[in-house]
Design a protein around this nucleic acid. Sequence first.
DNA 1: TTCTAATCCTAACACTTGTTAGTTTTCTTT
DNA 2: AAAGAAAACTAACAAGTGTTAGGATTAGAA
Lengths: 196, 196
Amino acid sequence: MAKIQSKKNSTKKEIIIEKAAGLFKEKGYGAASMRDIAETVGVEAASLYNHIQSKAEILQAICFKVANEFISHLEEVERNSEPTLKKMETIIRVHIRMMLEQYEYVYISDHEWRHLPEPYLSNFLNQRRSYRKRLSDIIEEGINKNEMKNIEPYVAVLTILSAISGIESWQRSRKSTSAETLEANMVKYLIEGLKK
Amino acid sequence: MAKIQSKKNSTKKEIIIEKAAGLFKEKGYGAASMRDIAETVGVEAASLYNHIQSKAEILQAICFKVANEFISHLEEVERNSEPTLKKMETIIRVHIRMMLEQYEYVYISDHEWRHLPEPYLSNFLNQRRSYRKRLSDIIEEGINKNEMKNIEPYVAVLTILSAISGIESWQRSRKSTSAETLEANMVKYLIEGLKK
DNA sequence: TTCTAATCCTAACACTTGTTAGTTTTCTTT
DNA sequence: AAAGAAAACTAACAAGTGTTAGGATTAGAA
């Protein structure tokens, strides 16, 4: 019989990762200690090592989970044959929604990847570079097909991804703007700036 | 006679801050130790305390130097009476150039402010909030005067500032795109998306 | 040169870090 | 109930943290 933890149908390892994510987001990877994590899990620090192998493994799990999710969404978009502008809108919406719904994980993947130990660090950066290259290929196609205005694809990708990652600051705020307003307006801004 | 350090006409304190900035950017505030800083300055860790009072003081100096610079640029823009779109372009260019020319300081101010001790932390966040409010006031005026398209000012400000802070990723890269291309295209993207 | 102040050094402090060893408790299965 | 596995505990480790004390060395002013 498979070993399934009672609570929320998740492994203890998954619980640890989730609690750790909260702390990594709040205090940063370096400032969140194993003893901090243990306390929020409700256990002694040493006991964590029955479920994980190291602190870095937690970070890896988070960063690569996010990366894989983005990549699989991108592959789906690449497979269909909509206009390039529509493709970019879909991608932008995916990013915004990930930022809204899986904020902690995405934030950590965005900001704490530097603490990944090798060879995971190089791996992560390669994936990232390749992902951005594929986005800029879509934009380049859009320009060639006269669906988008003539903008350096690399700069457009940088602008889009960075703009979205700024939702972090909205998440931290008192949120007088609703999530729907945020998504609608950011999509509008980023797509209008791209449109021919 | 005033005590002026020989090298580069800067105080030893300024040298320490500059060297520390390099390390904060590279490894993060938490991971850069006083002994690391001391080594790059060419001195023992304890000797740093003849010139600074604490590690946190270095971070404060950096964060508030950047904040003050942005605020004084904004005040200059607010004083003149150009069209709102032109005002925003100026502000965007100021931000991009700061990101290009004072990359380390701006990066730290953007990413490591969370480690500021109170009451500096609250102070910093208040300044930040007020700065963004003043930007969104300009955009709101632009919309009312029909110089800009109807976009949530808060979201526009968030998008603009975040997009620019993404230049960090360009700085880290192999820079196959020139600084001029970067600035021109990012301004184009962000202003076109704002224009009516 | 002598005095003084600035700046360096070594040593140590109290504490925190991630992690391991070894033991005991708890749960699952027979 | 007995046996075995899984997961908790306590205790400790070696290393690293920011910072202070106190003494040595250097530089500038008299």
